[in-house]
Amino acid sequence: MQASTATANTGRIAALDLLRGVAILGTLASNIWIFTDPRGPAGVLTNLPSTDSIPGVVETVLRFTANGKFLALLTILFGIGMELQYRSALRHGRSWPGWYLWRTALLFVEGTLHYMLIFEFDVLMGYALVSFRVAYLLARTERAIRAWMWTVGTVSVLVLLSLTAVLVTAPDSTTPTAGGTELYTEGSWLDQVGQRLLQAPVYRLELLLIVPSGIVLFLLGARLLRAGAFENSRRGLLLRQRLMRIGLGVGVPCNLVVSFAGADWALVGRYLLPPVVAVGILGLVTETTMRMRRQVGPVRRALSEVGRAALSCYVLQNLLASILCYGWGFGLADQLAGARPWWVVGAWAGICAILVLFCRWWLRYFSRGPVELAWHWAYTAPQRARTADHENRPVRS
């Protein structure tokens, strides 16, 4: 296999750091609409902006631009990361999944804490569940992997289309919400934590959609890496061009139409079409990195640094948005409700700037982000304890 020229001197695939940075800031561009709605998650999910006014059209276009696509891209990248871990285990003669299952357990704990303390729509818990299943699939044959992708993917599509058909044909009704306006404008942080615990069955229903689609996207990421999507070769170029044609040429127009079709098509607009667009973004960013591999400007450097501390930035951006928007913080969601969507764009840009500056400063002194460092310490703790126990064991004569 021909090595990719997008690989940095450290052995990292440079395009992956850049893609992770794009995915993290893009995910914030989707979630920021949740934080900035005074009614909280229930408000943004049940009340789409009206297209009868310029602000409404602008908000619809902006939400379309980010909705689901970068989350799908992040999911694919998790699958690529797992494939790299699998290859590393094979190179070093380690059993698989072996210690990787401990990583999935830590990810689930991290996601659970993130959900309870910060954000109702955490994805890390779902990623942990997906990782546990996919870890065993990576060692299977390509035929078995394709069978899993087609089976799970087909079922997921049928479920999403069936639910959409029910929404389209059902009479209009008031959608039940999980928490009122006062919780996010006047409630304390502890009030919100308690609400997340009480409403966990409601908020965590999304896992029923995230886990099946995540299995498909994790496996897709692994297969793209195996197929040479990050190689500086003809087959890599042809694959990236194909991804761009499908994702940008087909996925974007279809997704745009659905975005203006109303709330009944929300599931298709968030879970079905965005992964198609995501593969186009992956192909475009990777190909651009290949062509400009010797030109590392400030934008690419900033995005790559965010990508190196992706988990830290994911948690930090949601914490910053909570402080900025909720009543227990600055309360700007309520105070600036009449300035949507313009102030929302400013909030997103401001948080992005903080993340970029933080990563620039932090990575001068550490090789990983703070969450990544804590995660790595916890991951290696049992191995260190096992080694220490072995070294301290008395030698029998």
Results as ranks from 00 to 15, higher is better:
Gln2Ile: 02
Thr7Asn: 00
Val61Trp: 09
Ser30Met: 15
Arg94Glu: 15
Glu391Cys: 14
Ala266Ile: 15
Val123Gln: 00
Ala302Phe: 08
Met125Phe: 09
Leu117Ile: 07
Ala388Pro: 02
Gly68Cys: 07
Asp52Arg: 12
Thr185Val: 12
Thr380Glu: 06
Gly194Trp: 11
Ala178Thr: 08
Gln2Thr: 09
Leu138Ile: 05
Leu303Pro: 01
Thr5Ser: 02
Asp264Arg: 15
Gly346Gln: 10
Ile323Asp: 10
Phe35Ser: 12
Leu248His: 12
Ala135Asn: 05
Ile145Met: 00
Asn67Cys: 09
Arg360Asp: 10
Thr27Gly: 07
Gly251Glu: 09
Leu158Ala: 14
Arg94Val: 04
Gln335Asp: 12
Pro55Asn: 04
Arg384Leu: 12
Arg242Pro: 01
Arg196Glu: 03
Asp37Asn: 15
Leu324Phe: 08
Leu336Cys: 07
Val22Gln: 02
Ala165Gly: 15
Val57Met: 13
Leu101Met: 10
Val279Ala: 00
Arg146Glu: 01
Leu208Trp: 12
Arg94Asn: 14
Tyr86Pro: 06
Val279Thr: 05
Ile24Gln: 02
Leu163Ser: 07
Glu83Tyr: 13
Leu197Tyr: 01
Gly68Leu: 08
Trp343Cys: 13
Ala23Leu: 04
Gly346Leu: 15
Ala229Glu: 02
Leu48Lys: 04
Ser173Ala: 15
Gly93Leu: 09
Thr380Trp: 09
Thr27Glu: 00
Phe260Asn: 03
Gly247Thr: 12
Gly11Val: 01
Ile145Lys: 07
Pro41Phe: 12
Ile323Cys: 13
Trp377Ser: 09
Leu101Pro: 06
Arg234Gly: 14
Thr154Cys: 12
Val279Lys: 00
Pro212Ile: 08
Val44Met: 15
Val57Trp: 09
Ala309Ser: 14
Leu183Gln: 07
Val395Met: 14
Arg294Asn: 13
Thr380Gln: 10
Ile210Asn: 06
Trp362Gly: 10
Tyr326Cys: 02
Tyr365Gln: 11
Phe366Trp: 10
Trp375Ala: 08
Leu282Asn: 00
Ile323Gly: 12
Tyr314Val: 05
Glu231Tyr: 00
Met82Ala: 03
Ser50Glu: 14
Met149Lys: 13
Thr380Lys: 11
Thr289Lys: 01
Ala339Asp: 10
Gly346Pro: 05
Arg396Tyr: 12
Trp150Arg: 13
Trp342His: 09
Leu45Arg: 13
Leu190Thr: 15
Tyr203Ser: 10
Ser53Pro: 07
Leu183Ala: 08
Gly56Ile: 03
Gly93Ala: 09
Trp99Leu: 10
Glu142His: 13
Trp102Asp: 07
Pro97Tyr: 03
Met82Gly: 02
Pro49Lys: 02
Pro49Trp: 07
Gly262Pro: 05
Gly236His: 01
Thr141Asp: 12
Arg301Gln: 11
Leu272Ser: 06
Arg20Asp: 01
Thr177Tyr: 10
Leu71Gly: 08
Val250Thr: 10
Arg87Ser: 06
Leu77Phe: 05
Thr60Tyr: 06
Ala23Val: 02
Thr36Val: 14
Ser397Met: 10
Leu137Trp: 04
Trp150Pro: 02
